[in-house]
Computed example of a mutant assay.
Amino acid sequence: MPLLLLDLDNTLLDRAGAFRAWALEFLREIGAPERDIDWLVSVDADGLTDRWDIADAIRERYELRIPSIDIVEALHEGLVEHTKLDPLVACALRIADDAGWVPVVVSNGTVRQEDTKIRRTGLDRYVADWVISEEVGVSKPNPRIFALAAERARMRLRGAWVVGDSPETDIGGAAAVGLPSVWLHRGRRWMESRFAPTRTEDGLLPALAAVLGA
């Protein structure tokens, strides 16, 4: 029974889609043109930009008088509202489980993700466990977080695969710990020269099919 170490945002859950849905609603609320969605998505940088910096950028661009904290809270609530578990993802996880794989989430982020994403979406019913960086004090690509995931599942790392969309944290982490990996390219080209994924796929479903068939 090998481990399947899975990233959370934009791997198991469509974080980019949830942000875009919130951003469109927010732009309509403040009377901004819908075409500004591309600017707001670029500011977010796929979730890498701090939410307070996003709020400050919004306030400056649209000369808003509302406090930054209100925008930060609106963003948080919007992401929670729009983050859903795709039934096909749930089905794929069930198939992997039936095939003898043990899915474990390995995510960089705050412990709040456990309630707002993993449990709220019902993802907890389809994975064996999860490890969140803030909780354990170590982040991907540090190999230690993958070892902790194996410990939590009471399994060995040997034979595990890593699946994720981040070249540095997911694929780099897999390379650091010596594990095969699948990179979800999401329309991007692989640019890293220091390491490379074992497989490249355009979504979680083909990624899991590749792992099960390996």
Rank of each mutant, 00 (worst) to 15 (best):
M1Y: 01
M1H: 13
L5C: 00
D7V: 07
L8P: 03
D9E: 11
T11D: 06
T11W: 02
L24G: 11
E25Q: 14
E25T: 12
E29R: 12
P33T: 06
D36Y: 02
D38R: 14
L40I: 15
D44W: 10
L48C: 11
D53G: 06
I54F: 14
D56F: 11
R59G: 08
I69M: 00
L75H: 12
G78N: 06
G78E: 09
H82K: 11
T83M: 03
L85H: 02
I95T: 14
A96C: 05
G100M: 03
V105E: 04
V106G: 02
S107M: 01
V111P: 10
V111F: 02
K117L: 10
K117N: 04
R120Y: 04
R125V: 06
R125S: 09
Y126H: 14
D129W: 05
W130I: 05
E135K: 05
S139M: 12
N142L: 12
R144L: 13
I145A: 10
A147R: 14
A147V: 05
A153M: 04
L157C: 04
A160E: 03
V162R: 09
V163P: 01
V163K: 08
G164F: 01
S166P: 08
P167Y: 15
E168S: 12
T169N: 14
G178T: 09
L179N: 08
L179E: 11
S181Q: 05
G187T: 06
M191I: 11
E192L: 07
R194Y: 08
A196L: 04
A196P: 03
T200I: 13
G203Y: 05
L204E: 10
A210L: 07
V211T: 09
G213L: 13
G213H: 08
